[in-house]
């Protein structure tokens, strides 16, 4: 699984962190029902970003806004490429 469409993410293996306060239950289900490495947390200590929009931390790099929506939709489709 690669993540070439997210230029800030340069690792070949995905590790995604999300904040429970920040994503919808549906998005959480979408994330948890993949085979990628997921960590849900009660707080990622990124409160400003959390207040602004949905965000994820992908391989250590936060993504939000359209990039984040695109990422989650890609996961929902089961085809990260």
């Amino acid at each position: 699984m690669t993540v070439r469409h997210f230029p800030d993410v340069d690792d070949q293996s995905l590790y995604v962190e999300y904040c429970l306060a920040n994503i919808s239950p549906q998005q959480r289900v979408a994330l948890e029902h993949t085979d990628i490495d997921i960590r849900g947390s009660t707080c990622l200590d990124r409160c400003g970003r959390c207040y602004r929009s949905t965000f994820l931390v992908v391989n250590g790099t936060p993504i939000d806004g359209a990039d984040c929506e695109k990422f989650i939709n890609t996961l929902k489709q089961g085809d990260p490429e």
């Binding site: 962190e17 960590r39 947390s41 990622l44 931390v57 391989n59």
Partner: peptide, 8 residues
Amino acid sequence: WGRLDAGQ
């Protein structure tokens, strides 16, 4: 905060 070996 998080894992030592991956992520943020």
